[in-house]
Amino acid sequence: MKKYIYSLCLLGVIVYSCKTQQTTSPTSETNSAIANLSNEEILKKGEDLYSLRCGRCHGLPTPSDFTVEDWKPIMAAMAPKAKLTAEETNWVLAYVNANAKK
């Protein structure tokens, strides 16, 4: 009986720890910080973060390998793994979207 209870507890911990994280939507504070930067600065910050944070775990695809619509779910899934803030996620998304396949 104890083994059964311990097994259920362990299974619950495993399931809970595998739960996916959702990125937060940009706030007005994030939007105002982005508004204070020029488009070139945003794209440069996005490119730097993309190279540094996204390239730390795997090879980087060229942003033009995917369309703007393809990048949305990719970023939604990968931003939490790269530990990007909402602001950083927006910068990377701006960079990949600017260079996405047309």
Rank of each mutant, 00 (worst) to 15 (best):
M1Q: 06
K2L: 12
K3C: 12
L8F: 13
C9R: 00
G12I: 05
I14S: 00
V15E: 11
V15N: 09
V15H: 02
V15C: 14
V15I: 15
Y16C: 12
Y16A: 11
Y16N: 10
S17V: 08
C18S: 14
C18A: 11
C18E: 07
K19S: 01
K19M: 06
Q22N: 05
Q22T: 06
T23P: 07
T24V: 08
P26K: 04
P26D: 04
T27W: 10
E29L: 15
E29D: 12
T30C: 15
N31W: 11
N31V: 11
A33K: 10
I34P: 00
A35G: 02
L37K: 02
S38W: 01
I42Q: 07
L43T: 03
L43Q: 01
K44E: 11
K44C: 10
K45D: 12
G46V: 06
G46M: 02
D48N: 07
D48Q: 14
L49G: 00
Y50N: 02
L52E: 10
L52N: 08
G55C: 00
R56I: 04
C57W: 06
C57T: 04
G59R: 09
L60T: 04
P61H: 01
P63K: 01
S64H: 11
D65F: 14
F66H: 12
F66P: 05
T67W: 15
V68W: 06
E69G: 10
E69Q: 08
D70I: 05
W71C: 06
K72L: 09
P73I: 08
P73M: 13
I74V: 11
I74P: 07
M75I: 14
M75C: 04
A76G: 10
A76C: 12
A76W: 03
M78C: 00
M78Y: 08
A79K: 00
A79P: 08
P80S: 02
K81P: 01
T85M: 14
A86R: 07
A86Y: 01
E88N: 07
T89G: 15
N90A: 14
N90Q: 11
W91T: 02
A94L: 07
A94W: 06
Y95W: 11
A98T: 03
N99D: 09
A100V: 03
K101C: 10
